[in-house]
Nucleic acid binder design. Structure first.
Lengths: 267, 267
DNA sequence: CGCGGGGTTGACTTTTGTCAAGAGTTGTGG
DNA sequence: CCACAACTCTTGACAAAAGTCAACCCCGCG
């Protein structure tokens, strides 16, 4: 149930502390709104199980989604740091969320300085992903946008440990795909049809299955660098101090630099 | 020169430490590329003077810009945290950048845990701003996009301490405006013309001057919440509890901890 | 069964992009 | 100090991408 803590790249003592922190589990079903920006908000929320999507709305009701939230991730730092969240969170599947009160989180920050650093990593990566989404929406034509989104989600699921075969299935209502890509559902539907006609994907019921990951990535001109693949999930044993003027920080030892490259085009 | 440190919401000892850290100043002129994602990168870069823009490019050369970098801000956390930066930084004016080697920055992190927390704040806000940009590009028509961008920049400059009258002048090539908004320069030009015709802005040479800030904000359906205005510049935030040097996270003292109960899942 | 929520399809509209030419500016060197 | 080159911005005619509206299909479900 709190298995998610195990996957964080933190030292044992830090995990201990998190596990010892009082928390509350809340469950939601697919389609529920987990939180909204206009509610008071005094707890950190961490997704434990399921999949959720962050989005904002316009006065006319149009929605734009920024990103998916995967398990073991903070849903909204804004809530602890600013006391408000700046978006809606929707449950894309049945979902479990852990809540830890803001006060306790800040306490953890103070006692375990590695935690803010970890979050800083995650937030920096989150911003990078968002930047890439903006690039898609701003400059790529619909078909590439879609190819890119599908490739990104597949890759992120793999990086999070999902088996490649499973990661090739994307189960996401077209309405949501449109909200990620800034497209209408009609256009999403037509675009999916094109991808299908090209033999890059197939559809089973409401799921998209990537048939040719490499081809899809090529069409998307996908460059995985922005995901900072090296910095992902693999539980990182507590680090000893690095050499060279402290080139590493405990817990994030040798992330990044020179890091492992993931080719977008594996098949 | 390092006046920028004074504006950071940190304790004196922390500012001292930053000031005592060896660093290097580099200067660039308008139009220069300050860094690119394909270069090795082993230092944190903090903008001291001037204005810069972060952008990514597509293989065909199209650009999408994410955000402006204002003075006293880190340009790219990715560089220290992951050893690569994921974007280009262009100097929009003549610019001064301070570089502090990654090793020393990580050392500062370790010795002054408030610093990562401060950066976490900034990065969370940065992501929020980026989210709003995505909302613009994905869902708002060109004229609102532009109105929104102009309003955002004006407001952010005011929040950073620029006099309102000065903040109403936006000096930004249309090429860049297009890169922020995902539009071509031709379309930007036409859109500016419309805003002008509506009496909301005027143009003097290459500068746009906001004539009717309220009207422009209204057209943009601008809601400033995403800027987290409370969390901005004011050097010493209100610490209601422990002062300076203690157990509280500078400026984030005690946000509501005694947890009100949350209602269970809604439908 | 009949209902409803996705998803699909087609005809048509609107927005934005493309291409091309021209007008202002700015800066530079002769 | 002028002339010209190099930008940047503007404008127009046209093309393409994406949106709108409306009907319809397909299933799963009560």
């Amino acid at each position: 149930m709190i298995r998610f803590v195990r996957h964080l790249p933190l030292a044992e003592s830090e995990k201990r502390a998190i596990l010892d922190t009082p928390r509350e589990i809340r469950r939601f079903q697919r389609g529920d709104t987990i939180y909204r920006p206009d509610e008071p908000c005094d707890a950190a929320r961490i997704l434990v199980e399921g999949l959720a999507a962050q989005y904002r709305i316009l006065p006319n009701g149009e929605r734009q989604s920024a990103d998916l939230v995967f398990p073991a991730r903070f849903c909204d730092l804004g809530c602890i740091l600013f006391g408000v969240s700046d978006h809606f969170l929707a449950a894309l599947t049945d979902v479990e969320v852990v809540e830890i009160s803001t006060g306790r989180v800040l306490d953890l920050f103070a006692r375990y300085p590695q935690i803010p650093v970890l979050l800083l990593h995650q937030e920096t990566r989150n911003r990078s992903i968002l930047f890439e989404r903006l690039l898609s929406v701003g400059r790529r034509p619909a078909i590439r946008r879609l190819a890119h989104l599908l490739t990104e989600f597949r890759l992120r699921r793999e990086l999070a440990g999902v088996a490649p075969s499973r990661a090739k299935r994307v189960l996401l209502p077209q309405r949501w795909i449109g909200d990620f890509l800034g497209l209408t559902t009609e256009h999403v539907s037509r675009t999916i049809a094109k991808l299908k006609a090209m033999g890059l994907i197939e559809q089973h019921r409401n799921a998209i299955v990537i048939r040719d990951p490499a081809g899809l990535a090529r069409l998307a001109e996908f460059d995985p660098g922005y995901l900072h693949p090296g910095a992902e999930a693999p539980p990182q044993p507590p680090a000893r101090r690095g050499r060279e003027g402290g080139a590493t920080v405990a817990g994030f030892g040798d992330r990044g630099s020179g890091g492992p490259k993931i080719s977008a085009s594996e098949s």
